[in-house]
């Protein structure tokens, strides 16, 4: 896999895990869901924060 797809693919895998986790159970499954689904959002926020025109 070329460099272009490395991070998007990782975010996609995390999203699939996160979306599926909370339907499978509660407790630790919910935490797994919240943690993994937060990553794509955090990446968006971090990239925006760092490159925001000052």
């Amino acid at each position: 896999m070329t460099g272009v797809w490395r991070i998007p693919a990782a975010l996609a895998v995390l999203s699939v895990i996160g979306l599926a986790a909370a339907i499978l159970g509660d407790g630790v499954w919910d935490w797994l869901c919240w943690a993994t689904l937060s990553v794509p959002l955090a990446v968006c926020a971090a990239k925006l924060w760092r490159q925001w025109p000052s």
Binding site: P8, L11, S15, V16, L19, L37, P40, L41, V43, K47
Partner: peptide
């Protein structure tokens, strides 16, 4: 650039 980053990062969620 903003469209590409936000779009690709949230693509699975948006698709689902």
């Amino acid at each position: 650039d903003l469209h590409n980053l936000f779009g690709v990062a949230t693509l699975v969620w948006a698709f689902v």
